[in-house]
Each structure stands twice: as structure tokens, then as C-alpha cells.
Design a protein around this nucleic acid. Structure first.
Lengths: 347, 347
DNA sequence: TTGTACGCGTTATCAC
DNA sequence: GTGATAACGCGTACAA
């Protein structure tokens, strides 16, 4: 149970600390005899280097960069800043520096520009939201060339391109939404509403829909009828009209599954009609929370952007400082939020 | 933004490192003049001691003790061991040692005996489950006398006795259960089933019931009818009989709220009758998970014993190592678990 | 090829 | 009272 240090090993083997170090790190030349003596001791005891002392002498400051959409335009990203500050605070004494960069999620070019800009700051690692697949891959490739480690969060990207994804299982998340809808409705007609803003969430939303439909397919029943609609949200007026005309065409809709954080715009559109439609959506943005508490939204699934950033950055920091391995995929639990437990998630 | 060290301060104040140290820690004697010079500098800059260097020289090993019910008799506590190992692993290099002690939850005397035993091992802090209020208070008092810091988890205890509780808001947890029941049933008759084992969970279960009923009261409707029953579980046969006779007396029961981790025994009792009763219960123990996946249980609320231990121990470790403050109350989110998201919580 | 000395920031001790 | 210094564990650079 004793904790052995390099000094201990040197003493036991009858060599100097330097030699032990050379054996441990396979650097420099070591004589056969010394190597044997040291390895013998190493086999007998269990040596774990003290991770603290390792980084005592901070001659290297590790620079981490976070690239994410502007929270001013989509408050979904707001909590991420908090996570950045927390991790920075926790690791600053170990020589970790974190910088945040935002882009306009409605402009592919903004993402590309920001990311290229970040690369010129020569960070050791980048944690980013690969909103635009094609451009993200381009950036990742550039990072690889420049020896910058890349982690992605929130949106999945080809595993050829990233060895480290933090987020949720979107397919399963669709199944959770379906289960909730099933519990509430028992049967009826359900609308899946994709609200695609200018940027393409294509794969993101498709996965959720697939999961949602798979649940009902596996029920093997005729009790449900499911229709999908793609809407755009630029002005509320035109959005409302589109949604209402969809309802006119499908007058028996009992539930709506909103695949993105904008459930509140659906609620607001429905206000123009008396209705008793169950709504299941995503994310704890302010307006969603209000409607959840008022009973206008039934369930929200929490995608936990803050925890995603927190985990992503923590792993990177510990990777550089303590050689901790980064899992290739970290899937966070799919938290179900109602009016009664929402407060516990607001931190 | 510069990080100042004691050396820097010494230079700026024109004194030695030793003097600065004496001022900072208020130890030893310092002349008026030196004190003034140093405090002046300290006011101008922001000094944060380097936590790494502080613990480099570990002359003190902090001993933490965890006291909890035997997982062999109630698998609810099983995941706690994992948390202990994780925290131990994370902090062992900082000089933290953790020991686990279990007691028989059906014997007050076992708790008392174990706890007194733990105190004789002279730990720096104890994290415990205050299952038995009276005895727990006795132990806490003894700890205070012996200068042992105490944190409690899972069960609440008078704030006069503990300055650090980690757990959940049980009242609110009852409200969550009620909300779920409401979503599923819309109206009907509901049974609240308390399964009291030999030990008294009294306050624990009462809080949940209060919350549950408060939700329906605030609905201000006559759609629901709620009945409570207290059962004992020693042999499955007699338990089943009691439950079934309760159902005979209340033939219209549509939903059952089980206030403890034993939903599975209710499911098994109901198997003797064809029934379509919604069940909301607690905790991810194996049998509950199986029935949840099979659709026999509708919802489980996750009390997260593992996270409770993890947080409790982490806070204590950081309190000793980094002088981090411990919040007097840490309420964990009330996770809602269904067949579709349960896998994400099993870690 | 190997040993040794030094630095990191803090703290405890010893000498003045 | 106070300043100087060793020690903690590791990595590294340099001298032998």
C-alpha cells in the first residue's frame, strides 16, 4: 500500500533517480545491468507517478479553445459560458488557459472564418460544435495537420474525423420522447415538427425522428398516426400561419413532438386556437421553462449543453496534465424534465 | 492577471518569504512595520495560494469514513461502493484515505455499534446515512466532541446536527411522482403504498406522501381519489395477501405510487391478477429495471445514491485539501426514468 | 552511460 | 522577530 517515488525506486535498485527516469520514460541510454535492476524493482512494486508533482513546474501553458454558436442569437448555448469559467477556475493553477470563440450559427462562412482564426492562435486543443458537417471536417483536417487535438460536442461527426464526441444518443432521445408521448396520449395522431433555421440540423433532427418513429413501430399497433412537417422560423407570423395550416390539414392532432429547442414558438402559435395538444420538446431555455411550468409544455428533454462543455474541457485538461485517456464517445443521460423537477436542473 | 506567489509578495514588500507566510497564516510574531508592508501589498494584488504546491508536502493523511447500510441486504446501496473507489482514486495522491463501514439497516443497535466503532478509528470526517434519527444525533454529538466533521446523505437530519446534507428534496420528489401519475391517468383512484421494513423510514416516506398529495390538492379537482396503505414486507406471501386485500377493498385503483425502492414486489403481487395499474416508484435496483423495461413499471425516480456519496466525499476531500467551503445543503436533481432512458443512468 | 543539481510554491524549522 | 533554507516528487539539463 506504500506509495513509492522515483527516489525510492532508485534506492532499491541501487541506481540514481536519473536512471530510473530514463527507464520509465524510455529516453536516453541505459546499460543492460541498470535496466535489469530497475525493471526488477518495478515488477515487484507498483509505481504510480504523482500527478501533482508532474505539473508543479509549469513551463508549459496548455491553451484550450472552445468554438460554439453565439448565445446572443440562441440562448440554448448560454449555460456553456458558465462551464468554461468553472473548468478554467479549477485548472488554472495547473497551467490551463481557455478561450471562447463564437460564430453566427446562421452563416456557414462565420463558422469557417472563426475556426480558421482559432487555428492561427495555435491552441493545444479545440472543443467545438460541428454544426456544419462539411466545413467541420475541413477544420478537423487542418487541426490534425497542425497537431491540434479536437473534441466535438452536441453534434456528432464522422468518427474518422473526431476521436472524442460528447453529447447524447439522439436516436434514443427520440425514443424517449415517443415513450412520453405514448404515456400521455395512449393513442391518436402525432405531429413531428422540425423547425429548421437557416443552418442545417439535418442529421441531428433526422436521428430524433427515426428514434421517435421506431418506438411506435415497435409497439406494433394501429393506435397511432404520425405525420412530419418541416417549418422555418424567421418571422413569427409566417411561422404561425404555416403551423396552423398544418393543423387545419390534420385536424385530429393530439400531440406534437418538437425536435429542437423552440417548443415555445409552437406553444405561442397554438394560443391562437383553443387546443388540448400534448407537447414534448427539448431544452431548458427560458421561454420553454415558463410554458413548462404553466402546463403548456408537457415534457422537455434536457440536452445539457453546460455539462457537455464541462466534460469536454475537463477531459482535455486531464489529458494534457495527467495523460488521462479520453473516451471516444461520452453519451450523457437523457434527462426528462417536467414542471415539478425543472428547478433541480437549473444551475 | 499575473499569478503572484509568496516569493513575489516578499519581494514587493521587501521582506522574506517566511514573514509573508506568517502574515498569511497568522502564525508566529510579526512586527507592526512588516505586517503593514505585507498587508498593503496583499490589498493591492490578488493572491491565491497554489493548491498543488500546498499539498506537495503531504505530512498529513486525511481519513474519511463512510457509514452506510449493508448493500447485501438492500441493493439500493450497491452503487455507493463504486463512488468510494472513484473518489479514493482521484484524491489518493493528495493524501486522502477512505474507509467504508456497513451496518444492518434492520437493527438500530447495529448502526450505533458500527458508528461508535468508526469513531474509535479517529477519522477526520464521517459521511453517513442517518437512518435512525435519534441514534444519528447521538453519534453526531460525539463526533463534534471529538472534532470529527460530519456530512450526512440520503436521509435528512436536523440542521442543528449537520451542516452538510446531500440528497434530494423528498417533498418535491413526491410532487414529481404525482405529476407523472397525473400525466398517465388524467383521473381516477390512486393508492400510495408505503412498504416499511423493520427500520423506520417514517419522515422519509411522509415527506414523499405530502408532496404527492399537495400536487393533487393544488390541481383543485375532484377527478382523483387517493388512499394510503402501510404494508410490511417480510415474507412475499403475506405481503401479497395484504396488498391484494387492499385492492379488493379499493377495486377501482388505477395507479399505485410506491414510496420506496421496492416497486418490484408490488408488480409481483399484482401478477396474480390481471390488471392495468400504472406504477410509479423509486430507484434503479435490478428487479425494478427489469420491470421498467417490460412495461410493468411506468416511471422510476432515481435517488442517485452513487452520486450522493461521490459528491459528499469530494466535498469533504476538497474541504480539507483546498479549504473549499461545503454547502449546507446539496439537493440533487430528481431524475425521471423510463424504459427508454434507463440505460443512460446505469453507470 | 550515469549521477547530480536545480526549479516549481508552500511550509516548517533553525539560526541569528 | 525575522531571514534563510530544506523538503516535498518530478522532470530536465549538464557535468562527470
Amino acid at each position: 500500500m506504500k506509495k513509492y517515488t522515483i527516489k525510492d525506486i532508485a534506492q532499491l535498485a541501487g541506481v540514481s533517480k536519473g536512471t530510473v527516469d530514463r527507464v520509465l520514460h524510455k529516453r536516453g541510454k541505459v546499460s543492460e545491468i541498470a535496466l535489469e535492476k530497475v525493471t526488477k524493482i518495478l515488477n515487484e512494486i507498483e509505481y504510480k507517478p504523482n500527478p501533482i508533482a508532474k505539473n508543479l513546474k509549469i513551463n508549459k501553458i496548455y491553451k484550450l479553445a472552445v468554438i460554439l454558436p453565439d448565445a446572443q442569437k440562441d440562448s440554448y448555448w448560454e449555460p456553456c459560458s458558465g462551464a468554461i469559467k468553472e473548468v478554467e477556475n479549477e485548472f488554472q493553477h495547473f497551467g490551463i488557459e481557455i478561450n471562447k470563440f463564437v460564430f453566427d450559427a446562421s452563416e456557414t462562412s462565420s463558422f469557417l472564418e472563426t475556426s480558421l482564426n482559432v487555428i492561427t492562435t495555435k491552441p493545444d486543443a479545440i472543443l467545438m460544435v460541428p454544426l456544419f458537417q462539411k466545413e467541420a471536417k475541413e477544420i478537423v483536417t487542418k487541426c490534425n495537420i497542425n497537431n491540434i487535438k479536437v473534441s466535438v460536442f452536441n453534434n456528432y461527426i464522422d468518427s474518422n474525423y473526431s476521436n472524442n464526441f460528447i453529447g447524447q444518443d439522439l436516436y434514443q432521445s427520440g425514443r424517449v420522447a415517443a415513450k412520453l408521448m405514448d404515456m400521455v396520449l395512449k393513442k391518436g395522431t402525432i405531429g413531428i415538427v422540425h423547425i429548421d433555421e437557416d443552418y442545417q440540423n439535418a442529421t441531428h433532427l433526422q436521428e430524433k425522428e427515426k428514434g421517435f418513429r421506431s418506438y411506435f413501430n415497435s409497439l406494433n399497433t394501429l393506435d397511432y398516426d404520425i405525420t412530419t412537417i418541416h417549418l422555418n422560423y424567421k418571422k413569427s407570423e409566417s411561422f404561425n400561419n404555416s403551423l396552423l395550416s398544418f393543423l387545419d390539414k390534420n385536424p385530429n392532432i393530439n400531440g406534437i413532438f418538437v425536435t429542437i429547442s423552440k417548443s415555445y414558438v409552437v406553444v405561442e402559435a397554438l394560443k391562437e386556437r383553443a387546443s388540448d395538444i400534448a407537447i414534448v420538446g427539448y431544452d431548458l431555455v427560458k421561454k420553454n421553462i415558463d410554458y413548462l411550468k404553466q402546463g403548456e409544455i408537457d415534457f422537455l428533454i434536457h440536452q445539457k449543453p453546460k455539462q457537455q462543455v464541462y466534460m469536454g474541457l475537463s477531459y482535455l485538461a486531464e489529458y494534457f496534465l495527467f495523460d488521462k485517456e479520453i473516451p471516444s464517445q461520452l453519451l450523457l443521460p437523457l434527462d426528462i424534465v417536467t414542471s415539478e423537477n425543472v428547478d433541480g436542473y437549473l444551475m
